[in-house]
Amino acid sequence: MKGKVVSYLAAKKYGFIQGDDGESYFLHFSELLDKKDEGKLVKGSMVHFDPTPTPKGLAAKAISLPLE
């Protein structure tokens, strides 16, 4: 699924993505496929991810940034 980063707290390594389906997904650095892309996780960045339901809500897994 595609989505847009709505927040990312680099110090805490987490944030949120708004998916194309309108839902909010929890984003964690550990799910970023290329850790070098962390600096690109800023508000408004477009990402691809696997939407995954968890006991705490919806989460983004296997997060990647589109090729530039």
Rank of each mutant, 00 (worst) to 15 (best):
M1P: 03
M1E: 04
M1K: 07
M1T: 06
M1S: 06
K2Y: 12
K2G: 11
K2V: 11
K2S: 13
G3A: 00
G3Y: 01
G3S: 02
G3Q: 00
G3F: 02
K4S: 08
K4P: 02
K4A: 08
V5A: 00
V6R: 12
V6S: 10
V6M: 12
S7A: 11
S7N: 12
S7G: 07
Y8F: 05
Y8C: 03
Y8Q: 01
Y8T: 02
L9E: 12
L9A: 13
L9C: 14
L9R: 12
L9S: 15
L9D: 15
A10T: 11
A10H: 12
A11V: 11
K12Q: 09
K12P: 03
K12C: 10
K12N: 09
K13P: 01
K13T: 03
K13D: 02
K13G: 10
K13H: 10
Y14T: 05
Y14N: 03
G15F: 02
G15S: 01
F16G: 02
F16R: 06
F16M: 07
I17C: 02
I17P: 01
Q18I: 13
Q18Y: 10
Q18D: 09
Q18G: 04
Q18C: 12
Q18A: 11
G19T: 04
G19R: 00
D20P: 06
D20F: 10
D20I: 10
D21V: 02
G22T: 04
G22W: 03
E23W: 09
S24C: 14
S24W: 13
S24T: 15
S24V: 15
Y25D: 00
Y25I: 02
Y25G: 01
Y25H: 01
Y25N: 01
F26L: 05
F26V: 04
L27R: 00
L27H: 01
L27Q: 01
L27W: 04
L27E: 00
H28V: 06
H28M: 07
H28F: 06
H28I: 05
F29Q: 07
F29A: 11
S30I: 08
S30L: 09
S30G: 07
S30V: 08
E31I: 02
E31M: 07
E31C: 07
E31Y: 10
E31S: 08
L32R: 00
L32G: 01
L32T: 02
L32N: 01
L32Y: 02
L32P: 01
L32A: 00
L33I: 12
D34R: 06
D34Q: 08
D34M: 06
K35M: 08
K35E: 09
K35L: 07
K36W: 08
K36S: 13
K36A: 13
K36D: 12
D37P: 02
D37L: 09
E38W: 07
E38K: 05
E38D: 04
G39I: 14
G39M: 12
K40F: 09
K40C: 08
K40Q: 07
K40R: 13
K40N: 07
L41P: 02
L41M: 05
L41Y: 02
V42I: 12
V42R: 13
V42K: 13
K43Q: 09
K43L: 08
K43A: 12
G44E: 04
G44Y: 05
S45A: 15
S45F: 07
M46S: 11
M46I: 15
M46R: 15
M46T: 14
M46L: 14
H48E: 12
F49K: 01
F49G: 00
D50N: 14
D50G: 06
D50C: 14
P51E: 02
P51H: 04
P51C: 06
T52F: 15
T52N: 11
T52M: 14
T52H: 14
P53W: 15
P53R: 14
T54K: 05
T54G: 10
T54V: 06
T54F: 05
P55W: 09
P55T: 10
P55K: 11
K56D: 07
K56H: 12
K56C: 11
K56A: 09
G57N: 03
G57I: 03
L58F: 09
L58S: 06
L58M: 11
L58W: 13
L58T: 04
L58C: 08
A59L: 13
A59Y: 12
A59W: 15
A60H: 02
A60N: 03
A60L: 02
A60V: 01
K61H: 11
A62P: 02
A62H: 15
I63N: 01
I63G: 02
I63L: 05
S64A: 09
S64Y: 15
S64P: 01
L65G: 04
L65P: 03
P66C: 14
P66D: 15
P66I: 15
L67C: 11
L67Q: 13
L67N: 14
L67H: 13
L67T: 13
L67G: 13
L67P: 13
E68R: 06
E68H: 12
E68S: 13
E68G: 13
